[in-house]
Amino acid sequence: MNQEINDLIIQIRNNNENSFEMLFKKMNKSVFALAISLLGNKSLAEDVVQETFIRILTKSETYADGTNGIAWILQITRNLCLNLLKKKKYEVNIFEDIQIEEFSHINNQISEGKINEFDIALERFLLKEALLKLNENERQILILYAVSGLKHHEIADILNIPRSTERWYYISALRKSKKFLSK
Rank of each mutant, 00 (worst) to 15 (best):
M1V: 12
M1K: 09
E4Q: 10
Q11N: 10
N15Y: 13
S19C: 10
S19Y: 04
M22H: 04
L23F: 04
K26R: 15
F32Q: 01
A35T: 08
G40P: 03
N41Y: 09
E46C: 06
D47T: 02
V49D: 00
V49H: 01
E51R: 09
E51A: 08
F53W: 02
R55N: 08
K59A: 07
S60K: 07
S60C: 12
A64M: 14
T67K: 12
N68M: 08
I70H: 02
I70W: 01
W72R: 07
L74D: 00
L74V: 07
Q75S: 15
T77I: 09
C81W: 01
K86M: 07
K88G: 01
K89M: 07
Y90S: 04
I94C: 03
E96N: 11
S104E: 08
I106S: 03
N107M: 15
N108H: 12
Q109N: 08
G113K: 11
I120Q: 03
L122P: 00
E123S: 11
E123L: 14
R124N: 14
F125A: 12
F125Q: 13
A130R: 05
L134R: 02
L134F: 03
N135H: 04
I141L: 08
I143C: 05
L144T: 03
Y145M: 09
V147L: 08
S148Q: 07
H153S: 15
I155P: 04
I155H: 05
D157E: 15
I161C: 10
Y170H: 11
S177F: 08
K178R: 13
K178Y: 14
K179T: 14
F180A: 03
K183G: 13
